[in-house]
Design a protein around this nucleic acid. Structure first.
Lengths: 243, 243
DNA sequence: TCCTTTATTGAGCTTGACTCGAAAATACCG
DNA sequence: CGGTATTTTCGAGTCAAGCTCAATAAAGGA
């Protein structure tokens, strides 16, 4: 009986090891050649198994890639959470800066995976799984944002999903722009301004201190005109006295 | 000779008509099934020609789709320029709002084409063409932005490409978010807040009056000098009265 | 009308995802 | 251990789809 249990365990371990081998091989091949360029035969060769064996682990090539993507996004989420946990300063804007830096760099480095994620959405219609994984990933930002509001660093009336769109949308688009104009190591130099502008943008648009820039202005204008009127009174007084 | 010329013309016209038929058929099939799902045989059938004929017009399926995409983006550019031309108000922020509204709606309605554009980037490596078309499209924003700076509505030290990333990045990401949470006709309601926030964001972050409180400073300076002058008047009045 | 040039075609070629029957490995039992 | 049942692996074969090409049709020119 003991033997039986042990055998079952080792057998399961063996299967899992093989599955991991397939995933690793698939990951490499997908990154190198993209979804359509990837040959299942090559994945099988790299994993040192027969081509048909893959199909006893995964229904199809698309599902295999889905598994790769899930593993990838889960890893990203963990890393992002680690970045948040390890950031010394606990102010919102410092943490936002750290997250932006991490995300931008990640999106550039793993551009292949980002593209592949959206590639699947077209090829296969039942890709709702990756949607949940995306949600899970952006939850890191959501948590940070809500905390920022709780601590009174962000306007209470700022809308979470709008801010999220600005954050991830801008960074993703910037990453594409940076990729397009890639001349070797120019990357690091171009990332900083993007990250900095993101922080300052959140400061000026969602930050609590600039919340009422409009009223301030009108207040100043009102003050100014009051002073003008006061000044006129003075002048008239002045004239009367000089007569 | 006349006959010859006429024949040449009609012949050329015939070819162009056929090419247009192919493009139209391809457009439909690509949108319906995506790049990989689209069958060249179906495109041929819809265009009422033999499958081989397509390959005498286009090198490959990928190049055919490229042509479809180019036509699509060119159309978008023209439309965007028309929106800019037809917007009554010539202030920067009104025009930005109009452009944002147009772009967001377009991205949502033609989500297929947007996706297909980035799909090609993976499948085929020589897609530099669509890059130029994208550049041409975003030039509409660039022109608007530069004019806004010239007219003194935007901070002179605002960086064009950063603002562009924020604008298109946010709108694209928002479009995806909106698509994900589509419950029939909820679209129109969700688009407006996105567009509004874009305008107000540009106002608070790139607008000249809020230029990182610097302009406020100058307003304060003006107030301060007004107070100084008032104070001087007081002093002179004081002196005169005390005499 | 005849010849040259160009355009069209669809039957095949090739490639690659996926299937399936058989064989190898493993588990189970006496 | 030996034999049998079950599970896992395998790669040759099937099928589908992009693409080629030799034959055919159409057009142009004398």
């Amino acid at each position: 009986m003991a033997t039986k249990a042990v055998n079952l365990e080792t057998q399961r371990a063996k299967l899992e090891r093989k599955e991991r081998a397939i995933l690793e091989a698939a990951r490499g091949v997908f990154v190198e050649h993209g979804f359509d360029g990837a040959r299942v035969s090559e994945i099988a060769r790299r994993a040192s198994i027969g081509e048909g064996t893959i199909y006893s682990y995964y229904e199809s090539k698309a599902e295999l890639m889905l598994a790769v993507l899930q593993q990838f996004w889960d890893g990203l989420t963990l890393e992002a959470e680690a970045v948040m946990a390890s950031t010394k300063a606990d102010g919102f804007f410092d943490r936002l800066q750290a997250l932006a830096q991490y995300h931008l760099n990640t999106v550039i480095v793993n551009a292949d995976f980002i593209n592949l994620t959206f590639a699947l959405r077209r090829n296969n219609s039942e890709v709702s799984v990756s949607r949940d994984h995306l949600r899970h990933y952006v939850a890191v930002f959501d948590k940070l944002f809500l905390r920022g509001q709780d601590r009174g660093e962000l306007r209470p009336n700022a809308v979470l999903w709008q801010a999220r769109d600005v954050f991830y949308g801008t960074l993703e688009y910037s990453a594409r722009s940076i990729e397009m104009t890639m001349d070797s190591d120019r990357n690091l130099r171009q990332q900083k301004p993007v990250v900095d502008q993101m922080t300052s943008l959140f400061h000026s648009h969602y930050g609590v201190q600039h919340q009422a820039t409009e009223p301030n202005h009108s207040t100043l204008d009102r003050l100014s005109s009051k002073l003008d009127r006061l000044s006129e009174k003075f002048d008239s007084l002045d004239k009367r006295l000089s007569r």
